[in-house]
């Protein structure tokens, strides 16, 4: 992981050399916008921070309102069998978070307490439950959609938002372990889902422009694990399956993906037996909005005092 100390600076004379000046993360803590928990990437949020997240959530809802997406909300945990079937472990075993629980009897309880008391590992007896932390907002959706039977001729469109978990502890505030992702998910024919992705590439770009943030759209790949993952990543790029809308937050050289536009082809359709009206395998695509990441981009570029943000930006967010 690149250290913040070497991160180049921009947009204000902020010298993150780690000696004389506090980092962006430190300033977020100092200002009370984020709250330390002792775990990198796991933070509390202040009312001010949340007011931006909520405004963005509403803004994204307004941008998509005309499409009449079906709103669904899932908790940040999903069924373990569904998670296993999704194939997530093939690509990202290192990022997954499983929920474990104490399943023993009284004798084991006493042993557990003794371990805690002695500062020893008390987790050895914890058993995996049937819940896994949601890795992306759309993962719990596919089995639910497939259970309804074949798609109607016009396909389907869903509106999701969830806390998601990825185990990648980092000092970059934009790389949280638990964060919220708003998503629109389209299911249908290849033409339908690609048209959807195209429309959100446009809308998303306009949205970030309206928020007066610098941006670039780039071909991207998911962070697949290992050597096999390198091949998956190369394929994903070569086929133009994933694009990201990047905004410099921590550095100019390594900008932060704030929106992502993903074409899964028939991956989830095949995995879940999701079919189009004519019986052929459904294709899917999703657009994801990293709500904390966009919030952090706004704080980085417009300052930590929301009241001092440009009037035009405040109008977009709060009317």
């Amino acid at each position: 992981m690149e250290s913040l100390a070497s991160a180049p600076t921009f947009c204000e004379p902020l010298d993150d050399d780690g000696l004389s000046e506090p980092t962006f993360l430190d300033r977020l803590f100092d200002q009370g916008l984020l709250v330390r928990t002792g775990v990198d990437g796991l933070y509390g949020r202040s009312g001010a921070f949340e007011s931006v997240v909520e405004a963005l959530d509403r803004l994204i809802g307004r941008l998509g309102a005309a499409d009449n997406a079906e709103v669904l909300r899932f908790p940040p945990g999903m069924s373990r069998p569904a998670f296993e079937r999704s194939g997530y472990l093939k690509g990202f075993p290192n990022l997954a978070g499983t929920v474990h629980s104490f399943c023993g009897h009284e004798g084991e309880h006493a042993k557990l307490l003794a371990c805690v008391e002695a500062g020893e590992d008390w987790t050895a007896g914890q058993k995996a439950t049937d819940i896994v932390l949601t890795p992306a907002a759309c993962y719990p959706l596919y089995p639910v959609a497939a259970a309804r039977g074949a798609l109607p001729a016009e396909g389907r469109l869903f509106d999701l938002q969830s806390y998601c978990f990825r185990r990648e502890p980092s000092l970059e505030p934009t790389r949280m372990q638990l964060f919220r992702m708003r998503e629109y998910v389209r299911m249908g024919s290849p033409d339908q889902v690609l048209a959807f992705r195209e429309s959100w590439l446009e809308r998303g770009t306009q949205m970030i422009r309206d928020l007066a943030l610098p941006l670039a759209i780039d071909a991207a790949n998911d962070p697949f694990f290992g050597r096999a993952g390198r091949m998956l990543a190369n394929n994903q790029r070569a086929q133009g399956l994933k694009f990201e809308l990047n905004v410099p937050v921590n550095s100019v050289e390594k900008p932060t993906a704030c929106l992502s536009f993903n074409y899964h082809q028939d991956h989830f359709g095949t995995t879940w037996g999701l079919t189009q009206a004519d019986g052929s395998v459904a294709h899917t695509a999703c657009v994801g909005f990293g709500l904390e990441r966009i919030t952090l981009a706004l704080l980085r570029h417009h300052g930590l005092d929301l009241a001092a943000w440009p009037e035009a930006v405040r109008r977009v967010l709060w009317g």
């Binding site: 096999a228 998956l232 394929n235 994903q236 095949t270």
Partner: peptide, 11 residues
């Protein structure tokens, strides 16, 4: 052949 199949093939 799908993406994961191609990875298994490679291995």
């Amino acid at each position: 052949l799908d993406s994961f199949g191609s990875v298994q093939l490679m291995l």
